[in-house]
Design a protein around this nucleic acid. Structure first.
Lengths: 154, 154
DNA sequence: CCTATTTAATTGCAAATACAATAACTGTGT
DNA sequence: ACACAGTTATTGTATTTGCAATTAAATAGG
């Protein structure tokens, strides 16, 4: 009958809340909050991503993201571009986001912290356990994304 | 070298963000947001909890929680009490939080949604897989709570 | 006993957030 | 070619949030 200690949303949220608090706390000296870090981390893997996709991947609301990007642009961490019309099928509403050299430098400055965080989180885990946890979490996410439409009433 | 798809904080945050958005969206018709729900869910298991402990258990910042409780009190979902000095060792700074009948009724009205959410999240999971995921998440949390003090620089 | 330190909860306040509305654009059907 | 619905990103705005400071009470040290 819904024991909190075994309730998945509770267990996830605890970890998630801790994560956000810790990232914000420790990254502040670098002038980075967790949103900024997420954007940088994503761009590191795939630069020039569109805003809408960046919003999905980072789980940041589009309106919030837009303002986060404003701030990052002002700090010269990223640039925004409208795709050059001329080649291929181009939608001139799109905006692509690109990490600047300065942004990349910051990314690498923060990376060690990000890696250490995971190391602490998974302390005492075998390689298999860590992989299992990640795979299961990915499946949960897929389930949620799939069940997006239908309401969950009683 | 930090593949996002295998980076634990990323995987947790995605699920967590989805969770918060969905709870807020679906509970709104009941006049409940995820914070209020967490308080109610915790009080359902242990009524009369102190504010500071409630803050830890719900992962809501004390200052935020204080205001959440204000709102819940105004809606007559909870009451706040200072413990009666007279019996036992009592600290008169403490405030305990108690679900009202009205609050309990709301809890039970919302419960089916909470149960369904977990059902959707764990769709296709065997009983073992679900248990494993929860156990691993609990271990992650313990690791984080333990490593609270030390900074995570490079 | 008196002062200093710590703890519990709250409040001040500036920043962050998300829903809704908007502006600019695409594409589809007729 | 034109109206209309659907997208993309941004902006308007009211609420929410969390850090820092505060109030009040307990505890420690001299």
């Amino acid at each position: 009958m819904l024991r909190l200690a075994e309730y998945l949303p509770y267990l996830v949220n605890r970890v998630g809340a801790h994560l956000v608090a810790r990232y914000n706390r420790e990254l502040r000296p670098h002038g980075v909050n967790i949103q900024v870090w997420r954007v940088l981390a994503v761009l590191r893997e795939e630069d020039g991503m569109r805003v809408s996709r960046l919003s999905e991947v980072t789980s940041i609301d589009p309106s919030t993201l837009s303002r986060v990007l404003d701030a990052m642009q002002q700090k010269r961490l990223i640039t925004r571009r409208r795709p050059t019309p001329g080649y291929g099928a181009v939608d001139s509403r799109m905006v692509t986001v690109h990490a600047s050299v300065r942004g990349q430098a910051l990314t690498y400055r923060v990376l060690p912290f990000a890696e250490n965080y995971e190391r602490v989180a998974l302390q005492g885990f075998t390689r298999d356990e860590a992989a299992t946890l990640k795979a299961l979490l990915a499946r949960v996410y897929d389930n949620l994304a799939a069940g997006e439409g239908a309401p969950l009433r009683g």
